[in-house]
Nucleic acid binder design. Structure first.
Lengths: 148, 148
DNA sequence: TAGCTGAGTTCGAAAATCGAACGCAAGGGA
DNA sequence: TCCCTTGCGTTCGATTTTCGAACTCAGCTA
């Protein structure tokens, strides 16, 4: 099974993992959540090669994670890349990465940006919880049952 | 800036994203959380090339996400790959991917495994919350502040 | 002694990525 | 009209990664 076959496996974890597990894709999403929307800006801030950038954007468009939205500048119509609802729903994935990074990869308090809740100013943290009792869960609290 | 430089950027999101954003790494972690621990088993279940598997395992060992643990079988000592505490803490990342996959990528109810809370039998869901008021947050509820 | 097994290593072919140049359409200015 | 600029790609040859199959090696077992 080549890598690409995971993208069509009947598993709701392996398909997203294969999609976001391609080189550059997670970093591209980070940039998008930070507000970057235009081809030139992705290219400049990430220094990704233009052909790969084109490819990754197209994959995300095809998956309906991004959409192309027209806008006007200098009287000209151009397009920018924006998150769809499906794309915005990836926020917990990025926040889970960041929560992990804060705990395990921050040598000091260094960060290139701060995040806080608009309403109360609090911090932001990803977690896993039980849909019934709302307890916070770790891997040890969860039972895995194979489907066959 | 080549891809590898993101691994040393002063950003607690880009470093994890660069690490887990390498091809095969997320799928490898999925397999580990599902219980796979041995080289041959990774190779057989994922059909990854042996040289890339060696490389990815070594990167995760170096990052202290995995550790090699000796075990005995047929009177011989071998080693298996197991999660460290740092590795176990990646659970929310995988669960966030799965939560997203369940919502947006499941054509039917199909899943290759079920997860439930050992204590109460409930389902499992990743979410983002405020560290102060405990409200559940979406991207829109969060303010990003650049550090300079 | 020979064979088996788990865990890699090696190596030539194929695929992905890189970087630099090129293409192109829509203005703007002369 | 002609030329220049901008944003957004496309193309292409060189470099890196990945692939897959064969090979190695250590520690048993027969």
């Amino acid at each position: 099974m080549p890598y690409s076959n995971f993208a069509s496996m009947p598993c709701t974890l392996s398909r997203p993992a294969a999609l976001l597990g391609e080189r550059w894709t997670l970093l591209l999403l980070r940039q998008i959540f930070l507000g970057t929307r235009r081809f030139e800006d992705f290219q400049a801030t990430m220094d990704i090669s233009r052909s790969v950038l084109t490819d990754r954007l197209n994959v995300l468009l095809q998956e309906n994670v991004l959409k192309r939205v027209p806008y006007h500048e200098d009287g000209r119509t151009r397009h920018e890349y924006r998150l769809t609802e499906k794309g915005r729903d990836l926020y917990p994935v990025l926040m889970a990465l960041r929560t992990w990074g804060e705990k395990w990869m921050a040598p000091e308090e260094e960060e290139s940006f701060h995040l806080h809740h608009r309403d109360c100013g609090g911090g932001v943290r990803a977690k896993v919880e039980c849909t019934e009792c709302a307890a916070e869960l770790t891997a040890r609290d969860v039972q895995v049952t194979a489907k066959q």
